[in-house]
Design a protein around this nucleic acid. Structure first.
Lengths: 348, 348
DNA sequence: CCATGCTCTGACAACGGTTTCAGTAGAGGA
DNA sequence: TCCTCTACTGAAACCGTTGTCAGAGCATGG
């Protein structure tokens, strides 16, 4: 572990001169210094550099769950931008828990130059700690109740859900269910609002027992779909508020041998790599994923440029897109679900 | 940004005493110091601590691609163990490129206490840099040609591929194709060897034009499947060497309206979250994922314990498991005789 | 009353860089 | 020849923390 002093001694100059050479300034004996660097395999100590400079060239990324393909894609986008600027990424999962998020952020905030965070809830206190440490932060995917003071890269959740609702209404569905995510997160709340309000505008008031709240995890998608299937009058269409809950719903419907879309239509928020290959191929509300990570990192790095450091917060809102595949169709006149008494006619 | 000096001044003691208090030693005025810490919101500088101690409490994780669900799961396993021990994770993608891997590792090696690496190739030179920096390293998923000197968590790739081949032979297939991964990676080589050699043992010599080499990415699975379908005598079964190539193959077969498993059976290495939901549900060789990350991190942290620091390298090899679903079945027709030319153009 | 031992203390020197400051060498002009 | 200016140099201070070391305070025992 050679230090700058070793290099200096070998090259016959002072450490200051080596430092200058390494930072690109002109010196008298560049060859000798370069040779010493090469021979010793010298690499500066990041700890020493960041102690002196106050900068770590490291960005903290805190997401609820890296195994969610959406967040994996976001992180990948972040990483590609960061690496080009020689920044590194410190990764942490919050497991959708404010407490855990708070803990990992408190732990990392003193050793990063900035943070990109998908807050576990809108009432999160975490951002205040980051604020106190005077570290720039960008929200991604989720906002805070009073988040306007921070940069953010979001999607138009309300409009995406509106598209989903309009699609189902357009197909003729009237008995429509929603499996929403945590209502204390931005996407959870906005997607439910957008969906329910659009239904209402279209003349359909969602029934209370069709308006279920989950937690963005696969298990909750599965369980709540089971609940819907056990109702006396199950819905003819289901909207699930994220990719994992869509998967859970699909599993439940498969397990119960429900024919999609003949018996029940399914539309989810977020696409999946395997979306087109599923049985049936899923109709979804798609949105940029890698791009969100790219934009968030650009926003953050911009803050390190003194020129822009004090700009007012920028909030980028990306559009969603309806991707029609085969999991949605007009409702059948009569829907019979397995295990249900036959001969029953349902009217709208 | 309060420093330990500020705390010391406020508490009326010296910085050394504050430091001692924080590290759990007995001091005379713990209350005053604690109060000062709380009032100032003091948190020690990680940079200063690591400069002084030479430890960073940070682990580098380098994987080919975090959006591969397998690596996302591995990283999650690593992270869960690391957090409990108050270690952090520096994440980097190598994009399956030795050069990029080398670059990110060189960049991070001076600021981590250890590295967990899925090497891009078996001939990788990277490990030598890590070695020179005297940083413990654990391989995951992939090994090195001369990797015995490092800890590793691997799976029995050869045996997994053997299971796949035996499964297809047992179903009666004789015209069998393999889409393998990079042959300069451990899983790429071992899975191909295990598959091809098991076929040979079963009396089936794989045809050269059925023995294709890809690169573990979805696009290569897609393209090579297209190649297979364009052969005069396409295979009746295909083995794909990882999850992404399986997905690619599935897309190609779907696009070409090939009936799985009636016309072609498909078996892949690695399960997917959506595996059971795909059309058809995939028969796969499954292996532990999160657990691999957990084990790798434990192996690494163990090295920081002086008691075990110099133990001989431990190499954990986990077993795979055949998961039979609906993408494999006996071949529809009798095995073709070599050289038999039918009038069929594309019908299988 | 003094010697001894124990516990706790602060001053100070690192750790490995970067930056400031006060030079010095050498080129060029008078 | 001497002076000025420019371009580079090394010594030293500093970033925030921890470990060493000598010593202070206090209780105990002889």
């Amino acid at each position: 572990m050679a230090t700058i002093h070793d290099v200096a001694a070998r090259a016959g100059v002072s450490p200051a001169t080596v430092s200058r050479f390494l930072r690109g300034q002109r010196v008298r004996s560049p060859e000798a210094i370069q040779a010493a660097v090469d021979e010793l395999g010298y690499w500066p100590s990041a700890a020493a550099q960041s102690l002196k400079s106050g900068r770590t060239r490291t960005i903290g990324a805190v997401v609820p769950d890296i195994t969610n393909p959406y967040f994996a894609a976001v992180v990948k986008g972040m990483e590609s931008v960061a690496r080009r600027q020689r920044y590194r990424i410190l990764l942490a999962n919050s497991e959708e828990s404010s407490e855990q998020e708070d803990e990992v952020i408190a732990d990392m905030v003193r050793q990063v130059d900035g943070v990109i965070l998908a807050p576990a809830t809108e009432q999160d206190q975490t951002p205040m700690h980051v604020r106190d440490a005077d570290v720039p932060m960008v929200f991604i995917d989720r906002d805070l109740a009073d988040g306007e003071q921070f940069d953010a890269v979001l999607v138009n959740n309300y409009d995406g859900a509106r598209q989903a609702a309009a699609h189902l209404l357009g197909l003729g569905h009237r008995r429509i269910a929603a499996i929403s995510g945590n209502q204390d997160t931005t996407p959870g709340r906005c997607r439910r609002d957008g969906f329910v309000e659009t239904l209402a505008t279209g003349g359909v008031d969602i029934r209370p027992d069709h308006d279920l709240i989950g937690d963005f995890r696969e298990a909750s998608g599965y369980q709540l779909t089971m609940v819907l299937l056990s109702l006396p009058e199950p819905p003819t269409a289901i909207f699930t508020a994220n990719n994992l809950m869509t998967l859970g719903a699909l599993k439940a419907l498969n397990d119960m041998r429900v024919d999609i879309p003949a018996q029940i239509s399914l539309i989810g928020f977020d696409d999946l790599d395997t979306g087109p290959l599923l049985r049936p191929p899923l109709t979804v509300i798609d949105r940029p994923m890698v791009e969100q990570g790219v934009l968030a990192m650009r926003l953050l790095l911009r803050r390190f440029d003194e020129q822009y450091a004090d700009d007012i917060p920028r909030r980028i809102v990306l559009d969603t897109k309806l991707v029609e595949r085969a999991s949605t169709a007009p409702p059948q006149e009569e829907t019979e679900l397995p295990g249900r008494r036959t001969g029953r006619t349902r009217s709208l």
